[in-house]
């Protein structure tokens, strides 16, 4: 079924890419735009994840998980302080349907299902943005913040961030076996 549909899709403009050799990127992921998209080593991109570099470059670190239907990239013209693009640091998990227009997403941050990160926002390290939560445009979220429910916040200083990073690494090991990578398609 899916193979039939692929033929009806017009080939989108291929953006310049810099992909690590140990990257796992599913065939049905989409990379579009005109600026450089950099994806780091051991990162996993699920099918139907979308990267759009039309307005600014995108850089993703190593050991990240980008789930299906998530959308990464500015959806409108970048402001002067946003020209350097989107930087997603190491060990970030972006779950299903999340929309990320942040300038920076700090190390080990988890953006959960259908959360929205407003344009130009800066997320600190080891944050957790709960399901359906929204971060407004240009907001700066300090390290270790947990955003949950209808906009409630707290700091998580439990000190288990190393364990969380290890868990992400384990998850990536498993996903590497499950998701067939098609690196050649995006190079």
């Amino acid at each position: 079924m899916s193979s039939k549909r692929a033929s009806t899709m017009p080939a989108p403009l291929k953006p310049p890419t810099s992909l690590a050799s140990s990257l796992i990127i599913a065939e049905h992921a989409s990379l579009t735009g005109t600026h450089l998209i950099t994806l780091g080593s051991n990162t996993v991109v699920h099918p139907r994840a979308r990267f759009n570099s039309t307005h600014a470059p995108i850089t993703v670190g190593s050991n990240c998980i980008i789930c299906e239907r998530s959308s990464i990239g500015f959806q409108s013209e970048a402001a002067a302080n946003e020209r350097q693009g989107i930087l997603i640091e190491n060990g970030v998990v972006i779950e299903v349907g999340a929309v990320v227009e942040a300038r920076t997403v700090g190390e080990g941050t988890i953006i959960e299902v259908q959360a929205k990160i407003g344009k130009g926002a800066v997320l600190g390290k080891h944050c957790k943005i709960g399901p359906l939560c929204e971060i407004t445009e240009g907001e700066v979220v300090p390290d270790f913040t947990v955003v949950y429910g209808p906009g409630m916040r707290r700091l998580d200083r439990s000190g288990v961030e190393d364990l969380k990073m290890k868990m992400v690494a384990r998850q990536i090991e498993v996903l590497k076996k499950l998701i067939p990578s098609n690196l050649a398609k995006f190079q």
């Binding site: 239907r69 299903v96 498993v174």
Partner: peptide, 13 residues
């Protein structure tokens, strides 16, 4: 979307 859940159990994901 239907997505099987995942977790770490006895050190294995």
């Amino acid at each position: 979307e239907l997505r099987p859940p995942g977790k770490l159990y006895k050190g294995q994901f």
